[in-house]
Design a protein around this nucleic acid. Structure first.
Lengths: 260, 260
DNA sequence: CGGTAAGTTGAAAAATCTCAATCACGGTGG
DNA sequence: CCACCGTGATTGAGATTTTTCAACTTACCG
């Protein structure tokens, strides 16, 4: 289970970051040591006195207004980004305009790991609400992790965790049907929100039905119909993007009961 | 593009590793420096005189007969494995016996990266033919990569490449139909074989239709039918697992032409 | 040779997609 | 302040793709 961070003071997805349109790069006011995401972010496992060493690494922050790109496919890779506030999606596309959402990232999660492979970003990262990220220059991360064993290990774990997550998505896309996919998606979302101190049952989706569908390998109509079905079955209360889970066990049963 | 290694002396998938049933762990006879996979494997980018430093790291080899596990989901993670000869599949499963093949690995490719996340393997790795792997104790890899910048960087690139690959599979599973998936799969296989010095058009599949289907999110019958369709269209010659690509451009067109 | 695992093929069922119409909501401007 | 507009969401009906179930063939191994 996830370590429980100190309760963040704002609601998830709720409070838009104060906009500073003319100043998108700013010095980091909150150091890792006092960041309430430290138990979920890169510093996992670091002791309080170790955290100070990250301050030189994570020196800048960047605001990304809703709808804007944090980075785009093909751009030069220079840094990783840790979500501080807000919500992102990442998507890959093929030459012929196909588009696949590969993930949704919330506070404490890392963006840009795909860029290490060839010094180019291999996906787009788009803010789904006004967001801010900590900028982690990659060259410095490599350097610091050479002399800082715990950091090195944390970083490797984070990359590996992304691989494990991706394999889980493959299982979902390859083996599950619409209802199971959506149930798994919702349970995953609420679990991550809960790890951040929010309600396990009430949430506001920051993404459209189409984006959910793209992530789950379904068309938006199928997503919508499946929401309606869950609603009819009393599993969920659905008011557009406002959701309330009425029967978590019911959702869990959907994905755990073998169809065989 | 991949660097071209010196031509391996055996055919892909063809020559079973001489079995040494009673001696599955053996000292490494071939050092990285003289291994013909060095341009495709962990040592990518290392200079000849650097390679010697890997010898202490990659000290043992292990044989895995066809059908046996290299490691299993839930086992303690201690080492990564580089495929020396042979062919593997990795698969994840959910509690209810669902099973998803997450990848096929051939010479020079790394197995076990998923284990770093929690010191436990998160998938099964099964040899699809008699195979042998180099054992790379993970603790030593971390240690060596701390003082050996190029190795550190190579390793990070390999992990990142796995993430990029996984995102490509998500695109395939989420957006493509049966024909496109199979075409993409075949082109990927032949491209990797070609990078290892083998024919771009002639290959022997080491996996069953069911395993291909599991990887591609299709039932085995659909895979079989799609092979037959490709055959009828003159794209492919199919004799069970023996394939010959007759019209590579035709296969490429299948995945590059937007369905819109 | 015979048994078994793997592969092929057909026909019907099921899931999902497509196309189209309509509805809800948030923001904007009169 | 409220009507209007546009995006996003819902719902229906028919088309399409894939799966399922079943029968049958082929290849391989001892």
């Amino acid at each position: 289970m996830q370590a429980k961070p100190t309760m963040p003071s704002t609601l998830p997805f709720a409070a838009p970051e104060r906009r500073q349109c003319d100043m998108r790069l700013e010095p980091l006011k909150v150091a890792c040591a006092s960041c309430n995401l430290r138990e979920l972010c890169l510093p996992v496992g670091l002791r309080a006195d170790d955290l100070a060493r990250l301050d030189g690494l994570v020196a800048t922050r960047r605001s990304v207004p809703r709808g804007e790109h944090l980075f785009r496919n093909g751009e030069r890779f220079e840094a990783l980004y840790a979500v501080r506030t807000g919500f992102f999606k990442t998507c890959v596309g093929s030459e012929d305009g196909r588009d696949q959402v590969t993930g949704f990232q919330m506070a404490g999660e890392l963006l840009g790991l795909d860029g290490i492979s060839s010094d180019l970003h291999h996906c787009d990262a788009v803010a789904l609400e006004d967001s801010s990220v900590c900028v982690i220059p990659y060259a410095q991360l490599e350097e610091l992790s050479r002399e800082f064993t715990v950091l090195q290990h944390s970083f490797h774990k984070i990359m590996s965790r992304e691989i494990v997550r991706d394999h889980g998505v493959m299982l979902l896309l390859g083996n599950m049907r619409a209802e199971e996919r959506l149930a798994a998606f919702l349970l995953n979302l609420t679990q991550r929100l809960q790890a951040r101190g929010f309600s396990a049952s009430s949430l506001v989706l920051r993404m459209t039905r189409e984006e959910i569908g793209s992530y789950l390998g379904l068309k938006l109509e199928t997503v919508s119909r499946t929401f309606s079905k869950f609603h009819d079955e009393g599993l969920l209360e659905v008011k557009q993007r406002q959701l309330r889970i009425l029967n978590q066990a019911g959702l869990e049963a959907l994905i755990n009961n073998s169809p065989c």
